[in-house]
C-alpha cells in the first residue's frame, strides 16, 4: 500500500464534504482489501496496536458487525458499546460519554446515533478519528461507499449512469449519502417515492424527483430500493404497506422498465414483499449480498486511511 493517498480527512462524517478523488481513493483501497476475505487467514497486521471503539447508540446488526469484522481483519483492538449496554440509558450526555472514551485513548471511534449531527458533536470532544456509521436521517457514508464500490464493480464505471433511489427518501441517511456521493462521481440520480416521503427541497441536492416509480425506472442502470422506516414514524405518511407495495414495490414487471442489465440494490434489512418482491431480491439482477461483502472491505479501507495504518497489508 505504498500509493500516495488523496485522502487527508481526519474524520469520515459524511459524503457531502469528500471530493471525488477522495471517494475514489477509498474505493480503490477497498478493492484491494476485498481479497482478504478469500484468504485462509483473513487478517492483516496494518492496524495492530490501534484501538477502535464502536459506539452504537441506535440498534444495528449488519453495520456494527461489518465494522467489527473490518477492524479485526486489520488487527485493530476493537470494542463495541450498544445502546442497551451503554451509560446513555442512565442519563449520561453524549459529551460525557465522549470525554470518557477519550480518556481511554482510542484511535478511531465509530458512532451510530439516532440524531443528525451527533458525530460532529463528538469530534469537538474527542481526539480520535470519528467515523459516522449513520446519524439520524442525515448521512451514512460507509454505506454510500460500499454502494459506489458495488456499482463500479458491476458497471465498470459510475459517471454517466442513471441511478434510481426509491422509497422512504425523507427518513433515509442512505439516500442522502448516496446522492452526495453519486453526484460527485458523475451519475444522474433520480429519487422516487410517495410525495409524502420526498423531503422538501430535495431537487436542490441535484436530483430529479418522481412521485411514481415507473417513469423513474425508465432507462435506469441501477435501482436502489430503500426500506420503509416504520421506526421513524414513516407509517403515517402513506396508507399501509399493502398499498405501498402495490404502488412502489419493485417486481419483475416494473424492473423490466429499467435497462436490461440494470442491477438491483438494497441497503438492508429488506422488508420482503413490501419494497421488493422476493423474486427480485433473490433474482439474477440482485447484487444485495455483494453489497454486504464489499461493506467489510470498504470499512477496512476507511479505518485504514483514518487510522494511519502501516504499509504491511500486502
Amino acid at each position: 500500500m505504498n500509493q500516495a493517498h488523496a485522502f487527508t480527512q481526519k474524520h469520515l462524517l459524511g459524503m457531502e464534504h469528500l471530493s471525488a478523488d477522495e471517494i475514489t481513493t477509498i474505493l480503490d483501497l477497498g478493492e484491494r482489501f476485498l481479497e482478504i476475505a478469500d484468504r485462509p487467514i483473513k487478517k492483516v497486521p496494518t492496524l495492530r496496536g490501534k484501538t477502535v471503539i464502536n459506539l452504537f447508540l441506535e440498534a444495528s446488526t449488519r453495520t456494527r458487525t461489518s465494522f467489527e469484522i473490518a477492524a479485526k481483519r486489520l488487527s485493530a483492538d476493537s470494542v463495541s458499546f450498544s445502546a442497551s449496554s451503554s451509560s446513555t440509558t442512565k442519563g449520561e450526555t453524549l459529551i460525557d460519554t465522549a470525554n470518557n472514551l477519550d480518556a481511554m485513548s482510542p484511535d478511531i471511534v465509530v458512532i451510530r446515533h439516532a440524531q443528525a449531527g451527533s458525530p460532529h458533536l463528538l469530534t469537538k470532544h474527542i481526539d480520535a478519528a470519528v467515523v459516522n456509521a449513520g446519524d439520524g436521517q442525515h448521512e451514512h457514508p460507509t454505506q454510500a461507499l460500499l454502494d459506489a464500490s458495488t456499482i463500479r464493480a458491476h458497471k465498470g464505471k459510475i459517471a454517466g449512469l442513471t441511478v434510481v433511489i426509491c422509497g422512504d427518501i425523507d427518513h433515509s441517511r442512505v439516500a442522502r449519502s448516496n446522492i452526495f456521493s453519486l453526484r460527485k462521481l458523475g451519475a444522474r440520480v433520480r429519487v422516487a417515492g410517495p410525495r409524502s416521503l420526498l423531503p422538501l427541497g430535495i431537487e436542490s441536492m441535484g436530483v430529479e424527483a418522481f412521485d411514481r416509480i415507473e417513469p423513474a425506472l425508465d432507462g435506469a442502470d441501477v435501482v436502489m430500493m430503500l426500506r420503509i422506516q416504520l421506526e421513524r414514524n414513516a407509517g403515517g405518511r402513506f396508507p399501509n404497506t399493502r398499498e405501498y407495495a402495490r404502488l412502489f414495490g419493485l417486481n419483475p414487471r416494473r424492473l423490466a422498465l429499467a435497462k436490461p442489465d440494470a442491477i438491483v440494490m438494497h441497503p438492508g434489512p429488506i422488508n420482503r414483499g413490501v419494497e421488493m418482491s422476493p423474486s427480485v431480491a433473490d433474482g439474477p439482477r440482485s447484487v444485495i449480498l455483494d453489497q454486504v461483502a464489499r461493506g467489510v472491505a470498504i470499512r477496512m479501507a476507511a479505518l485504514y486511511l483514518l487510522g494511519g495504518g502501516s504499509d504491511a497489508a500486502e
Binding site: E16, A116, G117, D135, G136, Q137, H138, E139, R173, R176, P199, L200, G201, I202, S204, M205
Partner: peptide, 15 residues
C-alpha cells in the same frame, strides 16, 4: 425549519 437546508443536513423540519 423544513426546507432545502434541513433536507440536506438530515434534521427533521417544521414547515
Amino acid at each position: 425549519h423544513e426546507g432545502a437546508a434541513t433536507t440536506r443536513i438530515g434534521l427533521r423540519g417544521q414547515p
